[in-house]
Design a protein around this nucleic acid. Structure first.
Length: 958
RNA sequence: AGCCCUGUAGCCCAACCGGAAGAGGCACCAGAUUUAGGAUCUGGAUAGUGUCAGUUCGAAUCUGACCAGGGUUACCA
């Protein structure tokens, strides 16, 4: 064997692993899975985009693969799968442009992905691969949808229950005992009333309770994409994908009652090991506010009142005006004839302002008086009612009791329109210059709460309100129910059809479970129809005919299916269970498999899913738990967000005034610019090495820029480029493809180098400059085993000699460090620990099998190919390095007899003295003070204090 | 505007519960080897930890304020 050949070796082992299914995880459904403890390592579901992987994508995969391999060596039964979230917009957009079926595009993209992933040597159990767009997978996504449809949320038991328990309650006691999360306009009725209803009437009522339901919702409609978007798919008023404008539109949509779980989604965060920033983002998204709702009756109509939500009911005596959202339903009836023109103008202007305008313009104060008044329930004072667009129709009740002395927005509004400002706490300061939202002090100008503290006042006011039916304590959430419909083709069909009863009322019904999966039909085009219906309306003859066959003569059958499809997050909200039992055709995963694997121990992925996927998955998981299908309340115990890998762009500098009409371009090297006016132009980072440009390659690649160009180089003839960190993207010519790196340096080097770049969770730029270091490391490691001879051949030099203490010390120091680092997900430091180890063993010329074999095992999670090769060369069964045992750290090899103490005088090191590690501090102190150097510094004085820290330092304080 | 993360050699990064600022890598310089380049080996130089205070015998580490960069949310009553 000559010098290490990574191409040959890596391909050999990748083939071996494939053929021998080395990483196949066996959990047999019988439950006797394995006596080993389980460990589930999961990477976030990738969407297989057409561009393939760039060098930033594998970062998290490498880290999770290291953990997987490490845990296997540590005796765990590891589940480490990979699959594809393969429904989605890009394939569909491509289909619209080219007419190619998205399934074909998706298939091709996945093939590229798998090829790239396999090249990096990941230990995925590919036999468990799943794809959300596969009918055998989405059968179960549809099944879960059906379960949601067949469930309601019982607030008394605080969990989801089958709809049957609700029907029982209706039949025995009507709505009296029902404490459910349901629509706002749900009617109340008695058991007798219920029992007299027709089947369709009953069905209509249950629709108010189901965890997925149809509603006319104001949605984010994106005309360019032809679909609605969830709130988390809209960024800055434009679509996250594509950046198209989004407008508000009322449409009939399937909704998910995630708000039923708001509180559990919030409290569950305290039980999981996720980064504080992600948890905080989820908390903000859920947006729980504890407060009260209060009714303000109208001055002219005591029967009608405006309800507000407030978190500071204690400030109610400071209310000097009321503000409604321009969309508020009472606006019309509240407006007096004198104000009508002004109000209408304002409401219309607000309607025209897009979400985006509103957001970009938060400074301008605007509003209009309706002319009407309501009454403060406590003081009975007249409160003028205004409209302003700083009040959001969608939050709380769309109305705010304005307390200018305590709330800055109210203060700004009051000041602008000359409304009164009344202080209500004796500690409030300068309410003439700004609002003061303190809760300290005692109330003034405040009727029944004068002299009370915040706590006393709040309790008193709420009790008073509840007694009179004028309000109550209330919790409000910012989070809304999630829109579940997408007017798209490439997604899961919703297993619902619509049927009219004798009176012509059309209601949704689930298809029969035996008919799952409801497969996506073929269509002639992937666009909405001319009448604006979703693409599925184009499917010829796509109608529901329940089995056994209905009689069409009676008007049965040929029912319309739901034409919208599910959103991207549907398939990814439960996929980790499918990996547990991916081929199961009778359940989404067997009870035994779920009981064994339970939950994900380590979840690796980007933080961009903070409020989308990670919230929806927790929601569905809680639902499945409630219904008894899964065992854990939270799906992902530990979450790590790998940092984004940014691009590092390179620039060539063209002197201004050159490269235009007849003037040939002149490029000047970075250090030769000397204040000249230059235009920086991106150059492909792949033709730059250590910031030196390959001029010939540049000319060839960009004749448009460099044809006939002159290059002013450094004195040594090199053209040095500039560099800047930017997002990795094609347009910036800074994309580095992992395939290129693997070809040149090998997968092991890529893996090591990606980890070596820096802390996993930190964002960092990709810079190929440093990769030579890890490349040298791998070869140096190889040379511990094979020595190169003068004639260029290599010789196996490992011996069976007993290792020396110094060698064992190096080994065990490394075992300890690597183990601790992996446990802390600090992979950059373990790579350098390996470098130290190999450097030290090389210096000692250590060839001992007892040391080197353990080192091979230690390194195998990071560099699986070379270690597999050496493991076999050491005489072990080929292909078994991943099923061996991790070397055991033994502290006895690290024991030191003596420690060289730095001796400080007043914090400055003046000398060092060696002491046995078991010397008592008092003895050390005496000897230190007797030391010549110390005596010299003492100058005969007695030290104030002597600090002796065992095995660290001695400090003599004068 | 709020919250979170990060500031250590030319660059990427280490330094545990405060204990001699440097482990590792890149780049750079010198030497050895080599026909040359590459590769390899040996040796070397460079920072006082973003700024200012505080706590301490002792601060890169803890606290506070500020500055810079990145992320995230955004009128939530």
């Amino acid at each position: 064997m000559a010098d290490y050949n990574h191409r040959e070796t890596e391909q050999k082992w990748q083939r071996f692993w494939d053929e021998n299914q080395t990483y196949r995880t066996t959990t047999d459904a019988a439950g006797q899975a394995s006596s080993k403890p389980k460990f589930y390592v999961l990477d976030m579901f990738p969407y297989p985009s057409g561009a393939g992987l760039h060098v930033g994508h594998p970062l998290g995969y490498i880290a999770s693969d290291i953990v997987s391999r490490y845990k296997r060596l540590k005796g765990f039964n590891v589940l480490h799968p990979m699959g594809f979230d393969s429904f989605g917009l890009p394939a569909e957009q491509y289909a619209i442009q080219t007419g190619q079926h998205p399934a074909i595009t998706t298939e091709n993209n996945i093939a590229t992905y798998i090829k790239q992933l396999k090249q990096i040597g990941f230990s995925y159990d590919w036999s468990r691969e799943v794809r959300t767009s596969d009918p055998s997978y989405y059968k179960w996504t549809q099944w879960i949808f059906m379960e949601l449809f067949n469930s309601w949320y019982n607030k008394d038991t605080d969990r989801a229950e089958p709809i049957s328990t609700l029907l029982e309650k209706f039949a025995t006691n009507g709505t009296t005992d029902v404490n459910a999360v349901c629509d706002a306009d749900t009617p109340a009725f008695t058991a007798a009333e219920w029992n007299n209803l027709s089947a369709t009437e009953r069905h209509a009522i249950t629709l108010h309770y189901r965890l997925t339901y149809l509603a006319d919702a104001v949605v984010n409609w994106c005309p360019a994409l032809g679909t609605v978007l969830a709130n988390d798919e809209v960024k800055d008023g434009v679509s996250e994908r594509g950046g198209y404008p989004v407008e508000q539109k009322k449409m009939r949509q399937w909704m998910m009652r995630i708000t039923a779980y708001a509180d559990r989604l919030l409290t569950g965060l305290d039980t999981i090991d996720w980064s504080e920033s992600i948890k905080e983002q989820q908390r903000n998204w859920i947006g729980k506010s504890v407060g009260a709702s209060v009714k303000f009756a109208l001055e002219t109509d005591a029967a009608t009142s405006i309800e507000v939500f407030t978190t500071r009911v204690d400030t109610i005596y400071g209310v000097t005006f009321m503000v409604l959202a321009p969309e508020h339903e009472l606006v019309g009836s509240l407006t007096t004839p004198e104000q009508r023109d002004a109000v209408e103008a304002y409401v219309n202007a607000a309607k025209l302002r897009s979400e985006r305008d509103r957001m970009s313009d938060v400074k301008t104060v605007s509003g209009v008086f309706t002319g009407s008044y309501c009454l403060n329930p406590f003081s009975g004072e007249k409160v003028p009612i205004w409209l302003a667009d700083y009040v959001l129709a969608g939050y709380g009740t769309g109305a705010v009791m304005a307390v200018p002395s305590g709330d800055q927005r109210d203060w700004t509004f009051a000041t602008h329109f000359g409304l009164p400002i009344v202080a209500i706490l004796d500690t409030q300061k300068d309410v003439d210059t700004q609002a003061d939202n303190t809760k300290e002090g005692r109330y003034i100008n405040s009727g029944i709460i004068n002299g009370m503290t915040y706590k006393e006042a709040t309790a008193t006011l709420i009790a008073w309100l509840e007694e009179r039916g004028l309000g109550s304590a209330r919790v409000n959430y910012r989070m809304r129910d999630a829109v579940f419909s997408r007017q798209r083709y490439w997604g899961e069909p919703v297993p619902v059809y619509f049927k009219a009863d004798a009176n012509g009322t059309v209601l949704p019904y689930l298809i029969d479970e035996s008919e799952l999966p409801l497969e996506l039909p073929a269509v002639d085009k992937y666009l909405p129809t001319e009448t604006g219906e979703p693409p599925l309306a184009r499917a010829e003859g796509w109608k529901y005919n329940p089995t056994p066959n209905p009689s069409p003569s009676q008007g049965e059958g040929n029912y319309e299916y739901e034409l919208s499809t599910m959103p991207g997050w549907a398939g990814s909200s439960w996929y980790w269970y499918r990996y547990m039992d991916p081929k199961n055709d009778s359940e989404f995963a067997s009870k035994e498999a779920i009981a064994y694997w339970q939950d994900v121990d380590l979840y690796m992925g980007g933080s961009e899913h903070a409020t989308g996927h990670l919230l929806y998955s927790r929601f569905w998981n809680k639902f499945l738990k409630d219904r008894g299908y899964v065992t854990q309340e939270e799906p992902f115990k530990k979450l790590i967000n790998q940092g984004m890998i940014q691009g590092r762009s390179n620039f060539a500098y063209r002197i201004k005034g050159t490269g235009i009409e007849g003037v040939p371009p002149v490029f000047v090297s970075l250090n030769q610019i000397n204040g000249r006016e230059v235009t920086p132009l991106h150059v492909d980072v792949n033709i730059v090495e250590n910031d030196v440009l390959d001029i010939e390659a540049f000319k060839k690649q960009r004749p448009d820029l460099a044809d006939g160009a002159e290059f002013i180089t450094e004195p040594d003839g090199k053209y040095v480029v500039g560099a800047e960190v930017e997002k990795m993207s094609k347009s910036k010519y800074n994309v580095v493809n992992p395939d290129t790196v693997v070809e040149r340096y090998g997968a092991d080097v890529l893996r090591l180098y990606e980890m070596f770049l820096g802390p996993l969770e930190q964002a960092k730029p990709w810079n190929t400059n440093g990769i030579d270091g890890t490349f040298r490391f791998i070869r140096k490691f190889w040379r511990l085993f094979y020595e190169e001879k003068a004639d260029g051949t290599s010789k196996w030099v490992v011996t069976d000699e007993a290792p020396a203490p110094a060698e064992l010390k190096i080994l065990h120091k490394t075992i300890k460090k690597v183990q601790e680092d992996i446990d802390n997900y600090s992979f950059n430091t373990s790579v350098s620990a390996f470098m130290v180890c190999v450097n030290e063993l090389s210096t000692l010329k250590c060839r001992k099998r007892a040391v080197l074999q353990d080192l091979v095992l230690l390194l195998s999670p990071f560099a699986p190919h070379i270690t597999e090769e050496l493991w076999a060369a050491l005489g072990n069964e080929p292909g078994t390095v991943s099923s061996a045992s991790f070397p055991v750290f033994d502290p006895k090899f690290l024991v030191e007899d003596a420690f060289e103490y730095p001796i400080q005088i007043n914090g400055k090191v003046r000398t060092t003295i060696s002491f046995a590690t078991d010397r008592a501090a008092s003895e050390i102190e005496q000897e230190v003070l007797a030391n010549d150097v110390v005596q010299k510094w003492l100058e005969g004085k007695t030290p104030k204090k002597v600090v002796v820290v065992p095995k660290r330092i001695v400090n003599v304080v004068l």
